[in-house]
Amino acid sequence: MKPASFSYHAPTSVDEAVALLAEFGPQDGRVLAGGQSLVPTMAFRMARPPHLIDINGIAELAALTVSAGVITIGACVRHAAFDSDILPGRTGDLLRKVVQNIAHYPIRTRGTFCGSVANADPASEWCCVTAALDGIVVLRSQRGVRRVPAAEFYQGVMATAVEEDELVVAAELPMLADDTRTGFVEFSRRKGDFAIAMALVTYRLENGAMIEPSVAIGGAESHPRRLREAEDVLRGQKPGGAVFAAAAEAAAAAIDPMADFNNTAAYRRGLVRTLTQRALESAE
């Protein structure tokens, strides 16, 4: 249970970090952010990166800013930052609600939002949030900057658009309009465990009818995504039990659920139906 030997690099600027990544990325060098996913895999020796590039000392990555309707989350912003009143508006409320479900307090003090995004665990809450809100992942390398929409960023189980020489420098989320209703529900066996499935919904009302609906599912498939089939059921309808049930049914029908040792695909499909309905009912 001891990590294998590695060379340790502690850059203090993004320029320095991407120079190191250009050199060591192709040799399986890895970025070390919060270490809350990477270090366990190194302890098990499932990962034996010969080089670690520790980004914790890069001050320019520590910023969490709001401007022009966009929340920009720097790569060193920890989960715990969202468990406070610093972020305004409906997006702030949503992130505060969601963060309670991520691991435990002493893990949230270290783990980062962007580390979760880069790690792309199918059951990562932040991956589900970026998918639901059509977030953008900002990547830097010596070759330049790329801004990748969440819908293209997540590509499979722990597979993303990040190239080996690229650093996730930030994730961007839109500030939701003040009248946006949001609902988030997940199911896990024990508090703090990775969820078996989760649902995140948002919509607004115009003349009593739902507009701009977003229904995103995480944990059930190889990566989280929005389900247009469920959104189409909601759009233009008045919120209520019957339409919520129909949208939940559409979500369950649209997914291709993963199966694992404890959970069959059929169980996950049922869970998605229930969680989508609950997320819609609890949206406020």
Binding site: Y8, G35, Q36, A43, T109, R110
Partner: peptide, 13 residues
């Protein structure tokens, strides 16, 4: 003063 898992942090950090 922040609580953390000391098995998930390298001493050099």
């Amino acid at each position: 003063d922040e609580p953390l898992r000391s098995c998930l942090m390298f001493a050099v950090q």
